[in-house]
Design a protein around this nucleic acid. Structure first.
Lengths: 103, 103
DNA sequence: CGGTATCCTATGGGATACTG
DNA sequence: CAGTATCCCATAGGATACCG
């Protein structure tokens, strides 16, 4: 990998991940409070369950979402945002200001 | 479009655009100084000319790159970064710090 | 309810050859 | 040199049906 690529790679990975379809909408949904699968499905009326399932896994792998399966409640899994996302989201304010001015 | 989508859309557009393959590498190349097509091609050794051409157009449409065709020099077009990119790039420092800590 | 499986199409983008 | 044209394949993701 060239020097150029080394410099760009982490930012590219970050942007291409967050830029994926549904990712931000899913995060925004969960940001209103931890949610189970069908809650998110309802919020994002047109999402395909296959896509939602795979996005949630990707979000977990990336570290922006954590999932917890509640005992006793027959497989009820809830999804929450992580510290990693909270930390990242601090960058969003200035980015949103930028988009308002330039996009 | 739902309220949720309205909130996320500009950021999504921004991230999905910058997250595209080659976009950051092209920008990084040009950031060393305005360049013509073949200069960028040489820097990014493995890029397909069809892709480079289309990415440069997208970058122009997005407003991150401007192109100027020099008279007298038979179709020599040079590509430069714009104010819009310069303004955006001010957000990159904190993002890079974030990636160093979290990715 | 909380997902998986299957199918299908559209788009992305690489390889290569070509043009003014 | 500065792209464009053609072809081709892999992946993304929507539709729908199904399962424990």
């Amino acid at each position: 990998m060239s020097e150029l690529e080394k410099q760009c790679c982490p930012i590219h990975n970050l942007f291409s991940f967050i830029g994926k379809k549904w990712i931000l909408l899913i995060i925004k949904s969960i940001s209103e409070g931890c949610m189970c699968f069908s809650d998110i499905e309802k919020k994002l009326e047109w999402i395909n369950p296959r896509i939602l399932s795979s996005r949630l896994k990707e979000l977990e792998d990336f570290g922006f979402v954590s999932s917890h399966t509640k005992e006793n409640t027959k497989n009820k899994t809830i999804y929450c945002l992580t510290e990693k996302w909270m930390s990242f989201s601090q960058n969003l304010d200035s980015l949103m200001k930028w988009t308002k001015k330039w996009m």
